[in-house]
Nucleic acid binder design. Structure first.
Lengths: 128, 128, 128, 128
DNA sequence: GTGGTCTAGACCACT
DNA sequence: GTGGTCTAGACCACC
């Protein structure tokens, strides 16, 4: 993994794991890699790996069983809530910014459509 | 200004000024407050105020006439370009995030519409 | 058992067994479940179950007859002593904390009364 | 300061600072020592000092102004809430334990009175 | 000066 | 094996 230098590593990893949990790639209740394994796979320091799990625990995205490991939360609602939160933040941030720049609803809808299709085409272009 | 968020103060101020320029609240060629005045009005450190103008000059958003003050650029194209850049970044960031969360185009369009109208109604509700 | 709190599991179990002994739920001299049984009933690791008995033996709360099993101590005084110890620790901890928070004697007595009655009512409410 | 080995250092310091905030020794909005100063005064590592402030921030007990330092929250309600929480936890923990040990309300009240007076006498005995 | 992040390596307790 | 804590020391951005 190559990290964006603008954002701290631990936040980037958290973001990635959040997505995996939200999308179900990491199922509810499944065991996460141990902090040490995480450190190896992302090429980061064990302390940083620890921090990642500590922060995720604080958000109740996972919990840890002493001596056994760290596990994805089993609370489906919590996960749905996180997903909603993430979406709302994206949406709000987008709309707020665009309105401040003076864009109208129609323009926005149009932009979304063109850009969305472009992105999708790019995706499928890579592996058609 | 939020002194406690992740975004540094000088970037927050720059962002705000960019918007004002793009929207025409600060017209092309108009005189900007002096760094000292900026520091007072935003309650920030004079060094920080200086930095703001330094960075904006580097982006060619404004220029300084020695002894006269700092002025908004007169280059209309430059401003239009900045506006486009800001919009694209917002759009990209939004779409990237939403797609990662598994949203489809239709959902996005719908969300935009409802949220946009909500925001507009809120605005007009405050000052009808 | 809470696998995720700060208190280690083996201490949680010991605490629970201590209470049962002190209250007479586990009478003096009665046979305790084998470590294996303990492990099954509490869903814990056999090593942890072993440790529990080791520690309780060290505190002279129980003793082991080889081949027969582990038994609650028959020393009444010992049990009374443990009870006193536990009570004192609770009391000390409570008072120390409350005084540090600036509470006065009268407040404490009042709080105890209201909360005690609430707890009792709750108990009897469940199984009247 | 001498640390209790049973509890992690950072929690002990947090506990102490919480008390100071709750009791008003550290007034609302006042500047806390910088992480580096804290590290020196408690003879701990700067990282540990950092962690202390990070955790306190997460509890909204303090906030930090970038480049300026860390400050006690100005939210009086928050502080009152924390105080109540701390008191309730102490009370609950005490009552729960005592009831499990089979104590009655009268006994508890009596114990509180005697022990409270003992503690107070001890205090005033030191500096009469 | 301030806090924030990261690395490296150690020790401990728990399962 | 697991996570939790702590130390030591470094670098960076911000004010």
């Amino acid at each position: 993994m190559d990290f964006d230098t603008a954002m701290p590593i631990y936040l980037q990893v958290i973001h990635e794991m959040k997505q995996k949990i939200v999308r179900g790639t990491l199922p509810l209740g499944s065991r996460l890699p141990s902090a040490r394994e995480l450190a190896v796979s992302y090429q980061i320091n064990p302390n940083t790996a620890n921090r990642i799990y500590r922060e995720m625990e604080a958000e109740e995205l996972c919990y840890t069983k002493r001596g056994l490991g760290t596990f994805v939360t089993e609370d489906e609602k919590k996960v749905a809530e996180i997903r909603k939160e993430m979406a709302e933040e994206l949406l709000c941030n987008f709309l707020k910014g665009m309105i401040e720049l003076g864009f109208q609803q129609e323009e926005l809808l149009l932009m979304i459509q063109t850009e969305y299709n472009k992105k999708k085409r790019a995706e499928s272009g890579i592996e058609p």
